[in-house]
Every structure is written in C-alpha cells, then in structure tokens.
Design a protein around this nucleic acid. Sequence first.
DNA 1: TCTTATCAGTTTGTCGGACAAAGCTAGATT
DNA 2: AATCTAGCTTTGTCCGACAAACTGATAAGA
Lengths: 254, 254
Amino acid sequence: MASTPLFRRIDVAPAYQKVADAIEREIINGRIKPGEPIGTEQQLVEQFGVNRSTVREGIRVLEEGGLIRRDSSRRLQACLPRYNKLATRLSRALILHEVTFRELFEASMTLEVASVEGAVERATEENIRELADNLARSAEVVERPAALAELDAEFHVLMAKASQNRVLQLAREPAAQLFFPTTEMIVGSVPEGGARLVEAHRHLLDAIRRRDKAAGVLWTRRHLQDWRRGFEKIASLDRSVEHTYMEHAYAARQ
Amino acid sequence: MASTPLFRRIDVAPAYQKVADAIEREIINGRIKPGEPIGTEQQLVEQFGVNRSTVREGIRVLEEGGLIRRDSSRRLQACLPRYNKLATRLSRALILHEVTFRELFEASMTLEVASVEGAVERATEENIRELADNLARSAEVVERPAALAELDAEFHVLMAKASQNRVLQLAREPAAQLFFPTTEMIVGSVPEGGARLVEAHRHLLDAIRRRDKAAGVLWTRRHLQDWRRGFEKIASLDRSVEHTYMEHAYAARQ
DNA sequence: TCTTATCAGTTTGTCGGACAAAGCTAGATT
DNA sequence: AATCTAGCTTTGTCCGACAAACTGATAAGA
C-alpha cells in the first residue's frame, strides 16, 4: 500500500481539451439538455478565461463528437448525437481496418436476425405501417436497382427501429452502411433479384404481423443468403471492403 | 430529365471543414497510410493557403474523428481509428438517448453469443493463450470485485478478438462499455458471485478449446443470465443507464 | 570513446487584435 | 400593421506574437 501522496497529479491537458471536457460534462450529466443553447463564443471566452481561438478548437472537438451543433443561425446548442453520423465514422474505421465482406456478412446476419426477433416481439402499429409503406414503394421500383437498394436499406433500418432496442439499432448501423450499398450491384446482376428481395420483405412484414418469430428468422436468413449468393457472383467474400468501394459509397452520400 | 446545368454547385463549407475533408480523403483512399506523417501545421498552412488557426480547427476535427493523432513528439500522423475510442463516443450517445439496461442486456446477449460462436470456430492458439492467461489472473482476484470486473471486461474483449471478426468486435464494444462496469456491483452483492463468474469463464475457455459451440453458447447464456439476476437485485432493468452511472464510469476512466 | 551539458532552431499551444460577411433587432417608413 | 433599413452581434478567417516543449547537433567532461 502506497503512502498518501503529497501532491495531486498535475493536469497537463491542453486548454482547448479542457474547454471541450468541461462542456461535455455539463451535457452528459444533464445540466445542459439537448436543444439548449451553449452560449456565444464570446461568452465562453469570458467564462473560461481563454482566447477565442482556444474556445473554437474546443468547439470543433465537441461538434465532431456530435455533442453540440449549430442551429440555423449558427448558434451553439447541445444535441443528441445522431446514430447515423456516428455510424458513418465507424464505417470509415471498418474500411481502414480492411474488414472483409465475410466479416460484414457474418456480423450482419447476427444483427439482422436479432432485429427481426425484436421486431416480431415488439413492433407497434406505427412501425408496421412504416414497413408496409416501404414495401409498397419497393414493389413499385422493383425494376430499378438503385431505388430498390435504397428502399432495402430503409426497410432494415425500420426493422431495427421496430425492435424497440436502440442499442441494437446503433450496433447494426455501421455494418449496414457498408453492407447494403452492394445491394444495388447484386439486384442488378441476379435475374429476378429485385423480385426475390421484395418477396423476402413481404414475408418479413407478414411474420411481424403474425408475431411469428420462426418465420421472421427464416426469411431474414434467406434474404441475407440471397445477398451472399449474389455477391459471390461478383466478388470474393474474402476481399476487403476496399477503398474504391468506399469512394463509391462516399461520392453517393455527398 | 433536367437540362445540363450551366453552373456547378457552389461549395459553401467553411475553410476548416474543407481542410479536414481534404486530409480525410487522402487517408481514406490510402494515399496517406496509417503511421505516415501529415506534415507540420506550417506546411499545411502553405499547402492549403489558409491561416494556421483555420488549419488547427481542421486538425481538431480529424483528431476527434480518430483519423489522425499526434505521436510522442506531437507531430501529426495518420492512424487507424481505435475501436474503443470510437466506442466511447457511441456509449456516450447511448447514455444520452437514455437506453435501458434491458436493451443493453438483450443486445449484449446477441453480440456475446455471436462472439463465442466465432471464437469456437476460429480462435487461434494465441487467442486461447490470452484467454487462459486472463482466466488465471481472474482466479487470483476472485474475492476482489473491482479487479475481477476489469478482468471480466477484458475476457470478453479477448473473446471477441478470438472470433476474428472485426465488425463484431466493433459492434459489441459500445454496449459492453456500458454493460460491464456494473459487474463490480453485482459480483460484490451476490454471494459466490465472483466464483460463478470465474467458473463460467473456465467453461467458456474449455468450450473454445474443445471447439464445442453448443457449450460455448450455453455458458455465455448462463453467464449473462447470472449478470441479469444479480442486476435485478440492485435495480430495475427498465431504468435508463443513468447520468449518475455515467459519472461513475467516467470518473473511473479518467 | 562514451556520456552529459548546452544551445540554437522548430513546432505546438495560446494569446490579442482585426475585419468581412451573415444574422438579428429595433427603430423608421409607408 | 407590414416593410425596410441601419446598427449591433456573432461567426469565420486572418495576422502577428510569444512561451514552452521538443529536436538535433555540437561542445565539454568522465
């Protein structure tokens, strides 16, 4: 057992970091609620007693972290970090770690199955309406791979939402962001690809309506296996989610 | 179909954002590899033709995003975003969204089971050694909840690593960061809690060694059910992962 | 020869002040 | 009352400056 230290540890974090930390603490522990204003840069300068440049560096950190944002008039306010934005960062990290489509597929299988199970158990009328609406729109664009791929991604987001489990929602998002953009290629290259996709969605929605978990899991598996078979016609599962592919997804998102 | 536009869209992003985007692009598409230097602030000032303050704001954005870091001498270099740094941000987001322990538990059950399945299939000798080492250390501190809780968290990280699936590794991390800190409280408040935990780990490692997937899944379920029963003695599963709890985890991490 | 001390040059973190552009406010005008 | 305008505020950017920390190399000492 060490003796009581004479001095406390010296805090050597740079000032901009301390500014960011101080504001973060206020938001995390709820003293500043999402939507509430943080104050102007000048006010922060006065409160913290540092230069405006320093405050601004701190603000950038928090902004990137998704804890604060600027409203329409560019004033600072606290906000709820959007899963989507964070997921984008994570997807980027996955790219840089050169994960393979096999890893992506395996993880997505787990996460999507869990989503469906949750959705079958807990989907609300509202959730079902949203899914039905998506299905109707999908049926209309079954011959247009780009539009269909987008609706497919949305369908699975809605499914995760219907599970009422926000942790799951967040956990599946990064993988989904990388996984689903390939749908367009696959649907386009497999005969009847679009029709099979819509049919799978129809069965999934049906399973949720009937609260039939086994059917939900079964059709999710089939749906993803379809994706996999399609993908393997185009490329190897063991190829990494490449930079070129990222550029594609990237350009499309902008 | 719209006619060809006369003008291209005007880019109105602030300069610091453009600086960040430009550097990010170079890293994402691999022209700058992880570990390579970005250059000094002065060099960036010259290359981009903007002020150093502007460059520094851009740097903060990338730093927080985990794309660049400063090495021992504070020089800038590209880096692979660390999962657990990103996961920390996600955990924070989950807190702010006031997710419940029930959501956390359900999602973790899915993710940990998937980890074990992967580990049983693909764990290397090295992975098994690490797990065995962790287990040995756990057995030594079975009576000290704080130390044991830490090793428990590590055990599950190692398990995810053994699954050889980096997507899964990343997906489970945010939930785990919120989930496992409660272990300390639970182990301390349940008689034989520590012993049960170590026993579960022993069976898990054994299942991996024998490549027995069913046993791995079974003991993972038991292990987490144990957590759940313990947790319910202390608090309701439907309580949100509260700010107070976050403060606890937060203080411990500093 | 090997280690240590020194010293000048870089680089980062911070500061103060400045200014144009965009937003906001409130009084003036129709 | 609705609209317009002028002034104030705030943000984004720039400039120049300086102390502290770090680098690298040279000089001094064992």
